[in-house]
Amino acid sequence: MQPFVPASWVEGGDAAVVDVRDPWEYDSIGHLPGAVNVPFDSFRSDEGEAGKLPPRAEWEELLSDAGIGTDEEIVAYDDTQGVFAARFVVTALLLGHDPEKLHLLDGDFSSWQREYETTTDGVDPDPATYESDPEAETPLVDFETVRELLPAAESGDVTLVDTREDWEFAEGHLPGAVQLDWRELVDEERRGLRPESELRELLEERGIVPESRTVLYCNTARRVSHTYLVLRQLGYEQVELYEGSLTEWEDRGGELVTE
């Protein structure tokens, strides 16, 4: 799996390009040539499958209307260093799209426009037929699984990673969790990933190593999506997502600690 791709790959390829920003940004500020607009709010659901995933039928309709077919290669971007676009990519993954055909622009719209063309021309895609795969294996774990893993996390046998900010972590986190703000993985100037050597050093310092089973959470599965893709980019194989994250955890009375 190669989640992150450079701008040169996007420009020279034939993948379906998805812009997840608000429509006014897409229309007024501009977008990548040929990109279709699938706003972030259009694929979020408070009532959907597995917590925050949209209902499968709505997802299929959304991608079909955007002209994206079932087997198509997809690359998504935003203008927030990739965190919103990462949620699109992970949504597609969790609903059964081929992970080898899912990518995130390494950077964002602001970094793209420094060197590449943008446009305000409208895009009117030909409708396609998109079918998700309800039988696909995904890295999803649920509330019960995470609760059962807490002793292993506290003993260090499982790495439970909180991808929120320091102050959020201090206010309350899952027992045994280590803190890794997703923004620590991003180069603020380049707006894409930090160099691989820096990423590996940071992760090792936090005890997040490839050999360990790693489970990620945040509040509503947005930030965790970006961190998941970074770990997969680095070759981590045992990475799982707690989709419900703290929103579900607290609603169901899960234990939180502050120390």
Rank of each mutant, 00 (worst) to 15 (best):
N37C: 15
D142H: 09
H173T: 04
A170W: 06
S212H: 14
E237P: 06
A50S: 12
H31G: 09
E148A: 15
E204A: 15
T247V: 11
Y130C: 10
V10A: 03
L229H: 02
V146D: 07
G176F: 08
V83C: 08
E243L: 12
G107H: 05
E189W: 05
E255Q: 13
E135C: 00
G69F: 04
E240H: 15
T129L: 10
T163K: 04
H103I: 04
W167I: 11
R194V: 12
S42Y: 05
E115Y: 13
V230I: 02
F84S: 08
E148N: 11
E196L: 06
L202M: 14
S155C: 01
E196M: 06
P125D: 10
D22C: 00
R222K: 14
L32E: 07
E184I: 00
E137T: 14
E243R: 11
P210V: 05
G122F: 08
D14V: 08
P23M: 14
H97W: 05
G13E: 10
P134T: 09
H173M: 09
G34P: 06
V209M: 04
D46E: 14
A92Q: 11
T220Y: 03
P175Y: 10
R114N: 12
P55I: 00
L94F: 06
L160E: 01
R252N: 12
P127Y: 04
V5R: 13
G156H: 04
G67M: 06
E115I: 00
P6H: 09
T91H: 04
L149C: 04
G172E: 03
F84A: 10
E255H: 07
G30W: 03
E243D: 15
S110L: 13
A16M: 03
A92G: 13
A50R: 15
T80P: 00
A136K: 07
E72F: 01
A221E: 14
G12F: 07
V239G: 09
D22W: 04
T227C: 06
L160R: 01
H173P: 02
P54T: 09
P195L: 09
E188M: 10
V17I: 15
L150A: 01
H97L: 05
F88R: 01
E248C: 09
L104G: 05
S110I: 00
G12A: 15
T70E: 06
A57N: 11
H226L: 15
S42F: 06
R164Y: 02
D124M: 03
A221D: 14
F40N: 08
Q238V: 00
E60H: 07
E115H: 15
Q113G: 08
P151S: 06
L203V: 07
Q179T: 05
I208P: 02
E205Y: 00
D121C: 01
E135V: 00
E171W: 02
L231V: 08
R222V: 15
Y116G: 00
